[in-house]
Design a binder for these strands. Structure first.
Lengths: 338, 338
DNA sequence: TGTTAGCACTCTCACTCGTTGAGTGCTAAC
DNA sequence: GTTAGCACTCAACGAGTGAGAGTGCTAACA
């Protein structure tokens, strides 16, 4: 019993099995390997090797007379190999993302959509929570019929707006004065402080109460939104393209699982390495036991990090997905980092 | 051969079949009707009636020893009956929508999501194109690091914004002066005119060129967006809940068809009656031949009308869907009408 | 003339039973 | 250590069968 670990030939065979299985989604037989990949070895030899690999837990047989299917452990070995190499940033993909993601739009949504389109899998983008956001500017823009658009800009460049009602008498100059006054008093304050201060201002005979209320509620909403990581999902029904999900029940379970974003957030928030790969049960999301989740982090300023990911069947061309993610995270980092 | 049309009893039986089929999705047998709906008649009698109804094209048999399934013609008759009555506005649904749709958010998206959640079908909302939009206000809001948020408000209350770069020297007062100057000159102009005028202003030594460019591009984008009907889809994968789509291929075809929005737009744009129902092939969307599309119109001001709709299998509780749509269109009309 | 009971008939569905083919494990020879 | 050969296993497929659901038709009844 001195069978060593996985020697070079076993590794080659394992890789060949993975690649064939990724391509075809069918159990791979020894004859296939001997003819398409390791032409110098007979199927019998491959058979012996496969038998060893199975015993070591890298392969599984759906049933005795079927070929072999890679186990999660096999993917893990394969992916760890990939991750040790430099992940090549795919220039084509980078160009694609640069093209699709307009800095003036909602970058996260655009990125998720572009990534889903490119990989034909489900894509997710996580934007981290930003605590202690400080107001940088606050402005009222006149609108028809006694309404005004209240815009709050934070020091990180986040923008939020809402329509509020104001007195019909306030013209654009008056609104500007109010905006200036409010910006003067509130600039540099955290959203939390802004809400607290508004109570005191209610007694001030400056802006009318509806303006103050509007600010308070928008500040509250902003704080709530920014105080938690948000996840954006795109291309969720790409999953239907894969035979793993040709069963509607499974597909539905998957899509439902995507809607419970807490688990996803959790997964994407703890992102210490540049790339991470969760295979099968490693992700701890039930209904995604047959999936792999590949993610990449990117900086969003102030030392915070967001993450972008691809979710698909464990049978996935990890090399391609990794380089697409590399490109996506690169482009996002450039847009959102300091 | 003087069999008259559909007499009252035939209508009752047809309705019973439709209602049972909507509930169970299984072909309905004569015995079921005789026991659950028309208890005073024997199954044999029902059988004779069903045979007549089949001959008239209202029923079909999947195979000879299965029960009957309503044809599109049957749904049409049934729905026309419903439409002649006043569609009862479901107060519960109305409350639900009022609750879910915040006037300060993107109303169309919120409405689509709420409707999808309520009906458990796919929901669509169409916002009509608005030609000749006129600028009502234009304002630059200061942002950190030599950026500014350009906000354009139209006379209809539509808001669009984009981040542009401006000279670092411009403080909030300077930006306000520019805003005031620009609003003065551009207010009341159509988006088209604004773009044309900006060429002339390029020679003006007021605001810097990047501001003018920003305005031009935002105006162009606004014009493009407002010049075509837009459709928002929500709850697209609710379709997986129905046995009609337990085949993944069908589900995928449906979801793909939803992505080609032109057909949907076309359908929703020609909305003359308060309610419309397209059953099966009436919608002229391939891949939705087994679907029904139920829509309701609502006013969005200036005589324009939007539409909100539900897409699901033809086997659909039309009464419930109609009253949900009634509630949705009512709430939308109140928010968006004059 | 409309309604009903009864019965033969049809067709799907679920199950079983060979047959086929792919792929393996083992053995013996190289 | 590698390979050819062979027996073995098991899923997939098709054919055959019985049960059950539902119909159409006929004849009797009110």
């Amino acid at each position: 019993m001195r069978e060593a670990g996985v020697d070079a030939r076993k590794k080659r065979i394992l890789q060949a099995i993975i690649e064939d299985y990724v391509l075809t989604a069918m159990p791979v037989g020894s004859r296939t390997i001997s003819r398409k990949y390791e032409t110098s070895l007979s199927s019998a030899t491959i058979r012996n090797e496969m038998s060893d690999l199975e015993e070591m837990g890298y392969l599984a047989q759906p049933h005795v007379s079927a070929g072999r299917v890679p186990s999660h452990k096999a993917y893990r070995l394969y992916v760890d190999g990939l991750l040790q190499q430099e992940v090549a940033a795919d220039e084509g993909a980078k160009a694609f993302f640069t093209d699709q993601i307009r800095p003036t739009e909602d970058v996260a949504t655009a990125a998720a959509q572009a990534l889903a389109e490119l990989t034909r899998y489900t894509a997710v983008v996580m934007m981290p929570k930003q605590l202690e956001l400080r107001v940088s500017c606050l402005q009222l823009v006149p609108m028809p019929k006694g309404a005004a658009l209240l815009v709050i800009v934070t020091d990180t460049g986040a923008i939020r707006d809402t329509v509020i009602r104001v007195s019909e008498r306030l013209d654009s100059d008056a609104l500007f004065s109010i905006s200036r006054l409010l910006t003067e008093r509130l600039a540099g304050r955290t959203l939390q402080e802004v809400q607290e201060m508004l109570g005191a201002y209610a007694r001030m005979n400056g802006p009318d109460a509806r303006v103050l209320e509007g600010i308070a509620s928008l500040a509250a909403q902003m704080e709530k939104q920014s105080a938690q990581d948000t996840v954006i999902v795109a291309g969720s029904h790409n999953i239907l393209n894969y035979p793993e999900y040709s069963d509607v029940e499974k597909a539905r379970a998957f899509l439902t699982a995507l809607e419970a974003k807490e688990k996803l957030t959790h997964l994407l928030s703890h992102h210490d390495a540049p790339f991470m790969v969760h295979i099968g049960s490693e992700s701890s999301i039930a209904d995604m036991q047959d999936c792999a989740i590949v993610t990449a982090g990117f900086p969003v300023g102030r030392g915070h990090r967001g993450a972008v990911g691809v979710i698909g069947p464990s049978r996935m061309p990890y090399d391609k997905v990794l380089s697409a993610l590399g490109a996506a995270s690169h482009v996002l980092g450039e847009l959102l980092g300091e």
